[in-house]
Simulated scan of single mutants.
Amino acid sequence: MSNSSSITQFLLLAFTDTRELQLLHFWLFLGIYLGALLGNGLIITTIACDQHLHTPMYFFLLNLSLLDLGSISTTVPKAMANSLWNTRAISDTGCAAQLFLFVFYLSAEFFLLTVMAYDRYIAICKPLHYGTLLGSRACVHMAAAAWGTGLLYSVLHTATTFSLPLCQGNSVEQFFCELPQILKLSCSDAYLRELKLLVFTLNLRTFPAVIRGRLRGEDTTASFGFPLS
Rank of each mutant, 00 (worst) to 15 (best):
S91F: 03
L166A: 13
D92G: 05
R120W: 14
L183P: 12
C187M: 06
K184W: 03
I90T: 08
A108L: 08
V140I: 06
L64K: 10
D92A: 00
P165E: 02
S163Q: 10
L106T: 13
T93D: 06
D68L: 05
I72Y: 09
S91M: 02
V140S: 03
N170M: 02
L64E: 07
C139H: 02
Q174M: 12
G148I: 00
A117L: 05
I90E: 00
L99Y: 01
S154H: 04
A96V: 07
L61C: 10
L106P: 03
D68Q: 11
Y153Q: 05
T74I: 05
C125R: 15
T161R: 01
C95V: 00
Q98M: 10
S83Q: 04
A108H: 09
T114F: 02
R193W: 10
A146E: 14
K196Y: 10
N170W: 00
A123D: 14
T114P: 08
I122R: 14
W85A: 03
C187L: 09
T74C: 01
T74P: 06
L101K: 08
G148A: 02
Y121V: 05
L134F: 12
V115M: 15
L69E: 03
A143E: 12
L113V: 14
G94C: 02
A143I: 04
L151Y: 06
L67N: 01
G135E: 09
A81Y: 00
F176N: 05
D68G: 14
A144E: 03
L69T: 08
Q98F: 09
T132E: 13
L69W: 04
T132Y: 12
Y121S: 12
G150C: 12
H157K: 08
G94M: 00
M80H: 07
Q168M: 01
F162D: 00
V155A: 15
